[in-house]
Design a protein around this nucleic acid. Structure first.
Lengths: 245, 245
DNA sequence: ATTATCTATAGATCTATAGATAATGC
DNA sequence: ATTATCTATAGATCTATAGATAATGC
């Protein structure tokens, strides 16, 4: 765990050293939370950010509560105070942003459905499904990018897949529903397997393993979601169409 | 760990009970290895099988040496005897079949290259790349299917991705090389991103998370590699072609 | 005589809880 | 008076090693 950077925040009560350094006068900025509500909110967020980052790289079992605590600069026991136990913390990381993602996607899909009226296209549906999501992560900054990687990792595990179901099934079913209308002559199996390919490619994107960087000799970058966005819906739409001989 | 089935093998020395039961006479079948070489080979294989299965579902940190030992029906220390430490065991699981997979794929790609001569197609290259692999896992039985899931899981992690590089880079580069010849007007970036989509979809297949089963209401099955094989090369080939406007 | 397997055990680490202390709230 | 944070510690588990025992090999 030599790589666990201790992000020293100037929060209250964060070890004698930093406290002493800023004890005489209340430190200038809004670094130091005033009310208890603020303090609580800040701690929760810092903990979730750290856990999100660590879980996204090392998985549930690859992260210890100590890792998280060290990264935030607090004591392990505080994690129990706020989150009861490790499983709960993990699920809290997942739940924090799951509603937002799935909500935005659902809106985008329903928006497209209305707009397209009687003649939805595969590519249109995929744009709504994919671009909204990619934008959210890319524009959301580091934490959202970590959340994306977290989801990719979770989705790859048997237990994790179950977690995803609860939040993302409605969105997937909405997408499938539109795809069926766009491809009335395709078999249901074709549509589901097409969806299976799309998710795989998407998860591989969100995971940002760095493999594409290496394989391409530095020409492409795992972090370059816009590059994926520019290609993915078109690529996949053509794939769907090709399934029907 | 309630689900860790103890596969009681009738090997030598496997606990007083089973030993006593078969002590008087040497047990009939070829269950009991004669020579030390056979004994060694059998133990190694049993350990690798168990580790492969467990690592594929729970990842490196989600499996303890005790889990593996219990599943085989031996003592933890024997794992150290044969494999030194946990990391080594993990890499041995990976290495056992990596050469075979990558070898077969490479042959298939080179075979296709010769056969296609001056006019290779994207779909042809993808058939060679994908079908060979899917067949190997599907026809190889349970252990090969577990290995596939193991790889999918490994590939999704930052450290794991590095492991894959060593073995699979030449195969990937060969594929890319053929794709470039098949798509002379495509940008290199397009080809690499297309490859990125293909891998993602493939890894999602190998992982067999059961998600497609659920989403499709039981119509499709994660285990159904032939169904993927029938669709994937065609799907992806169309995607590649669509990238060039 | 060598190899395969087990027994015993050290040392580290991990999760979780109980209870103390130091802040803010009213 | 309540909430946030820390100290101390129990109990479980995990990896790894040293050394004993029981097979096979010659």
């Amino acid at each position: 765990m030599g790589d666990a950077k201790v992000k020293v925040s100037e929060g209250v009560h964060r070890g004698a050293t930093s406290r002493k350094a800023s004890a005489a006068k209340p430190p200038a900025g809004r670094d130091r939370p005033r009310t208890k509500a603020e303090q609580r909110a800040q701690s929760l967020e810092q903990i979730l950010d750290a856990a999100e980052y660590l879980f996204s790289r090392n998985g549930f079992h690859g992260v210890t509560l100590r890792d998280v605590a060290v990264r935030v600069g607090i004591h392990t026991t505080l994690l129990h105070y706020y989150f009861k136990d490790k499983t709960n913390l993990f699920e809290a990381v997942f739940a924090r942003r799951a509603g937002i993602t799935s909500g935005r996607r659902m809106e985008a899909l329903e928006g497209y459905e209305r707009e397209a009226g009687a003649a939805p296209t595969v590519e249109g549906a995929l744009h709504a499904f994919l671009d909204t999501d990619l934008d959210l992560y890319y524009e959301g900054g580091e934490s959202w990018m970590n959340y994306a990687a977290f989801c990719a990792r979770v989705s790859n595990t048997p237990e994790g897949a179950r977690l995803m179901d609860a939040y993302f099934d409605p969105v997937v079913l909405k997408l499938v529903q539109i795809l069926k209308r766009a491809l009335p002559d395709h078999s249901e199996e074709d549509i589901f397997w097409g969806y299976h390919f799309v998710t795989g490619a998407l998860m591989n994107t969100l995971a940002r393993t760095g493999r594409i960087d290496k394989v391409s000799g530095g020409l492409c970058h795992s972090d370059d979601f816009p590059a994926v966005r520019r290609r993915m819906a078109r690529f996949m739409a053509a794939g769907f169409l090709a399934l029907k001989v």
